[in-house]
Structures are given as structure tokens and as C-alpha cells.
């Protein structure tokens, strides 16, 4: 993107969509707040790839409004993205990302986006919007394969971006992340290796079940997206909860 010298200001040299710009008649509006929301997403790196998990419920306040809203996006054969927070903001980003991918495909040069590039790009888009005080109220997990190495990163609505081997947000950060860290650390300490694909998927299933028991905005229908060197797959799953555990909770009679 060419930027004229006189238009150049620090931080304005990157290809960030010019959205949410203030107009002259814009009313200064305080208290942007999410309306249709989704709950936690989980992500875990295993030996040959990355797996993400997210349920398909979109809530309107406390109402379980839309029960079949998938939010794991297949970007290309190398990247999947999952979102949490305001669903419309996810759809907005999804449309832009899909357009990027189409543009890239039409070049027909065999080169496709890598996860680290998308992670950085998303962090710039979200930071740009937070600086305008018009945030996109969403958290994104970017998973993929970067030069044969599994990549997992998060970006929140401020543009806070980081990379790790296990990431969860929302209630998942309190309920699921400790389970994921424990499983990964134990595997490393005992066998000096990373989780296998099956172990990672089982771990995510367990975490989704734990979240379903305590997160009131969660749902029993969910998706697991798996990206490896040679494939991207998204599984549609249904939890089989065991409410016998409810009897173990005491003190609220």
C-alpha cells in the first residue's frame, strides 16, 4: 500500500482496513458493549499441529439465542481461526479475511498466508479500532502451521497479542487452562514430548465438558478444529454430560 509522504503518521504504514472512522456528525458515544456474545474458546498445540475448540451457541444476554452459530473459520489449508465475544464483530472480520484469501488465490502464485502473518495483521486491526475507541469486541485464536512448526496465538479486543502452546479465554482461562497446562506439563516432564493429536483432542473434549458444567453461557454442541501439516478438519460434536456430578455439589440446598 502506497502512503503519501504528507499523509504519513507513525503507525499508519500498515495495511489496516479503514473502518470505524469518525465522521463529522458522529455523536461521541460511550459504553460500547457486546450484544450477541459467544463464550470461551480453547486452543492447544500438539506434536504435529494445533487444535481449537469452541461451542456453537450465541447468547443474547442470558438467552441462548442462536444455537448453531459455528465460529471456527477455515482460512486456508494452513490456518484456522476461532473467535469469542461479539459474534457480529467476528463475522465482520471473517468477511475481510475471506476477501484477503480470495485476493491471494486470484494471484495464483501458489503462495498462501501463514498463521503468524494473520496473527500480526489481526493484532493491528484490533489495536487500530481500540485506539479509535470503537473496539471490535472479540478475542481471536489463530492456529496453523508456520514453516512446519505448529503456531497458536491470541489477540484480544485491545490488540494484546501473544503466542503460547495452550490458550483459553473467558471462563476457559479459569476452568480449562489449568487442566490444559497440567496435561501438557505432565507429558513434557514424564516423556519429554508434546501431546499426540488424539491426546490433544481428548483433552479439549474433557475441557469443554468441564466448562459446560459451570459456564452458564456454554452449550453442548461444539466444534473442534484441527490443523496439521497436510490437513484441516473441523469436527461437529455433541457433549454427553453426566449430571450425576451435580449431586456432589453440596451446600446450596
Amino acid at each position: 500500500m502506497y502512503v503519501k509522504r504528507e499523509d504519513w503518521i507513525p503507525g499508519n504504514f500498515k495495511n489496516v482496513p479503514d473502518t470505524g472512522r469518525s465522521t463529522q456528525n458522529d455523536i461521541v458515544q460511550h459504553g460500547w458493549t457486546p450484544i450477541t456474545t459467544t463464550t470461551s474458546v480453547l486452543g492447544v498445540v500438539f506434536e504435529s499441529g494445533v487444535a481449537l475448540a469452541a461451542d456453537t451457541l450465541t447468547s443474547y444476554g442470558s438467552m441462548a439465542c442462536f444455537q448453531n452459530n459455528p465460529r471456527i473459520l477455515t482460512v486456508n489449508q494452513n490456518i484456522i481461526v476461532a473467535a469469542a465475544g461479539e459474534y457480529s464483530d467476528y463475522q465482520f472480520i471473517r468477511d475481510i479475511v475471506e476477501e484477503k484469501v480470495r485476493t491471494e488465490k486470484s494471484l495464483n502464485d501458489g503462495i498462501s498466508m501463514k498463521p503468524k502473518a494473520l496473527h500480526t495483521w489481526l493484532s493491528r486491526v484490533l489495536y487500530n479500532r481500540r485506539t479509535k475507541m470503537k473496539p471490535l469486541w472479540s478475542t481471536f485464536l489463530v492456529a496453523g502451521i508456520q514453516n512446519d512448526v505448529p503456531f497458536l496465538g491470541e489477540i484480544d479486543k485491545l490488540g494484546t497479542a501473544f503466542v503460547d502452546d495452550q490458550i483459553a479465554n473467558g471462563y476457559g482461562a479459569y476452568l480449562a487452562l489449568p487442566l490444559m497446562r497440567k496435561a501438557i506439563d505432565e507429558k513434557r516432564e514424564k516423556f519429554n514430548s508434546k501431546l499426540t493429536k488424539d491426546e490433544a483432542v481428548d483433552l479439549l473434549k474433557k475441557c469443554m465438558e468441564v466448562l459446560y458444567y459451570r459456564d452458564a453461557r456454554s452449550h453442548d454442541k461444539y466444534q473442534i478444529g484441527i490443523v496439521t501439516k497436510d490437513s484441516v478438519e473441523i469436527q461437529n460434536l455433541v457433549l454427553k454430560p453426566n449430571w450425576e456430578v451435580a449431586k456432589l455439589v453440596q451446600g446450596y440446598e
Binding site: H30, G31, T33, M133, P135, L158, T160
Partner: peptide, 13 residues
Amino acid sequence: PKARNFEPYASNG
């Protein structure tokens, strides 16, 4: 009902 105000800063330690 109170609207949640957007806080553009976080303290990340």
C-alpha cells in the same frame, strides 16, 4: 442498566 464503558488500557504486568 449500566452500559459497560470501554477501557482502552490493560495492565499486563
